[in-house]
Write a protein that binds this DNA or RNA. Structure first.
Lengths: 339, 339
DNA sequence: GATCGAGACTAGAGCGCTCTAGCCCTTGAA
DNA sequence: TTCAAGGGCTAGAGCGCTCTAGTCTCGATC
């Protein structure tokens, strides 16, 4: 058969034969455990290289009772999810585990992704921003250790790692107040996940700054269109604010483009803070000051939990909250003096 | 051990016992092949459901000599790559194969990704926009069937599926000319992959339209900053063009923001066409007319090739070229009458 | 009534590893 | 000298499936 010339199946036995040792010894060498002389170790590696051998993952996993695999379910098109995945890859190198990716997309459900990861016998699952129903999540968590990221759950049946959204909104406000703003409004996310926390953070921060009288929450949303719509409320009226904390970057971008179209100079006449540090915030034509989630710590904490759970750690679910940080770009500045 | 209460290992043997049949029969049922009575099929499925059994992928793959797995190497942060991955998922359902993802990121090399997929004994590899050196690619292709997407190779050692960039630039020009533009310039991508083809497409289209005299290529680049820089060239001078075909969307976005800052109305005074249909093109504040790659056909063609190669198809490498299409948004319109 | 064939089912040998048990040898302490 | 300890190595039994080569049953055919 023509295909035979390709790698074909060079197995551990072939390597063993060529190196003149037993299969078991080859296994020892490839697992990197003690029990082989330096000489033989070298011999085996050479033989393997000559034959182009690489161990068969499937067999390897089957042989040991543990799969040493962590499953990650993430949204293929969510930039923040993919950022977390990258962090996972980085973090997992320090462990004895490997990662298996299960992507989610408009045409591929979480259910499908989870199913396929389960077939690989992952020892724990990392779910990034899962949208599945609560009862499905609970059911899953009873089958396999689960760590949920970026979704707030009350009374969780599994570990949760998330960003402190209240704190995020707070530091956004503090940034503006620190620059000298007093009239700072919040364009919120209505009922989106996280919206309530951000609203609360905004309110509390304003109160702490002695600006209770200035508190004003304007209904917004998640999209640019929502931001554009909210712009009407923000910009009209006598009491135009000098600072806006928006629910997220897209909303802020809509607001920004509407403001500029109205001839309002940003940041000279209006400062704007987004949320998420999504890619558009970094575009030079937008250059949005925003709140960034600490993907590194989020991923690190989640990975740590997953590994411990996989190792049999059996304590009640843990809720880990990571503070976000401010990223200052071009849409925030000292307010101009008016009147 | 505490972990035992979780799924633990329920195997085919457990299902067989519960259903009162042999393991082999359970296998037959789960593989969905003929050879089991309706009654027993039902019995087995019921037993499996009761036990919460799902077949072990690792063992399954090991048992059959073929892995029935296609590996995909893609850039985690490239939106176009992830779009292709989604298409792959869709397409692969119609086949007998499964997908294994190997993500690439700034901190994770293609080499690592390929290595891990190879350990899974993928029967073919789909490389999306691979950046590895030519000789590494050739070496890889000699080990396992490889299909390369979105990278132009001359005299390839493997199948290539790509977009017809020359054609893309051509239809961008034709769109503008069709709207009545005559002074159409091209802000190019210098030496970026695809830049030469797009330049050629622009030139040829202009010539076909009888506008050879208007041909003008301005050095650009891939980023917004490149676009902003090119804007100076485009907008200055007596002979300002009415239409611009940019190398890509980011370049076009930079151009757009610079033009607007200069008080040039888009699309009234200047029409702009980008390339790639990236996410920013769809942002309402940008709303860029652009050229979209046909991810569906690209993925379909690549998948088809991979499956055939995996099946032992052994013809010389195939080069598949897919035409892109125009996406009209808000940055292109009939030119205003001047003078 | 013997023969055949098809369908339903099973036994059991792999697949390529891991890992335990045990062998052989050398070394150092008793 | 004896024995324990331990390093280096191997045999061989799994791991949970797939798949070939059967066996058995039953009804149709000659």
């Amino acid at each position: 058969m023509a295909g035979e010339s390709r790698s074909s199946a060079v197995t551990m036995a072939d390597v063993a034969e060529r190196a003149g040792v037993s299969r078991a010894l080859v296994s020892i060498v490839f697992r990197g455990v003690v029990g082989a002389s330096a000489e033989n170790r070298e011999r085996v590696m050479r033989a393997a290289a000559e034959l182009g051998y690489s161990p068969d993952r499937r067999a390897r996993l089957l042989g040991s009772s543990r799969s040493r695999t962590l499953g990650v379910v993430f949204g293929l098109h969510h930039e923040f999810h993919t950022e977390l995945v990258e962090r996972f890859y980085q973090g997992v190198e320090r462990t004895e585990f490997d990662l298996a990716l299960g992507a989610t997309a408009p045409t591929r459900t979480e259910r499908t992704a989870v199913q396929s990861l389960l077939e690989f016998r992952c020892e724990a699952l990392l779910l990034v921003g899962p949208t599945m129903q609560r009862k499905d999540l609970d059911a899953l968590a009873s089958q396999v250790p689960v760590v949920v990221l970026a979704r707030d759950l009350r009374a969780p049946s599994c570990d949760v790692v998330r960003t402190d959204d209240e704190h995020g909104a707070r530091i956004a406000v503090e940034h503006l107040v620190g620059l000298g703003h007093r009239a700072v409004v919040h364009v919120d996310g209505r009922r989106a996940p996280g919206a309530a926390e951000r609203r609360r953070g905004y309110r509390k921060a304003m109160e702490s700054a002695g600006l209770s009288a200035q508190v004003r929450v304007i209904p917004g949303g998640l999209t640019e269109e929502d931001g554009e719509r909210a712009a009407a409320d923000v910009l009209s009226g006598r009491s135009r604010p000098t600072g806006v904390v928006a629910f997220n970057d897209h909303c802020a971008a809509g607001l920004l483009s509407a403001a500029r179209q109205d001839g309002v100079a940003v940041p000279r006449s209006l400062s704007l803070v987004g949320y998420d540090d999504s890619r558009i915030a970094g575009l030079s034509s937008i250059s949005l000051t925003t709140i960034a989630q600490d993907s590194r710590r989020l991923a690190g904490a989640a990975l740590d939990l997953a590994v411990r759970r996989a190792g049999g750690w059996d304590e009640p679910p843990v809720d880990t909250v990571v503070p976000p940080r401010l990223v200052v770009r071009g849409t925030s500045a000292t307010p101009e003096r008016r009147r």
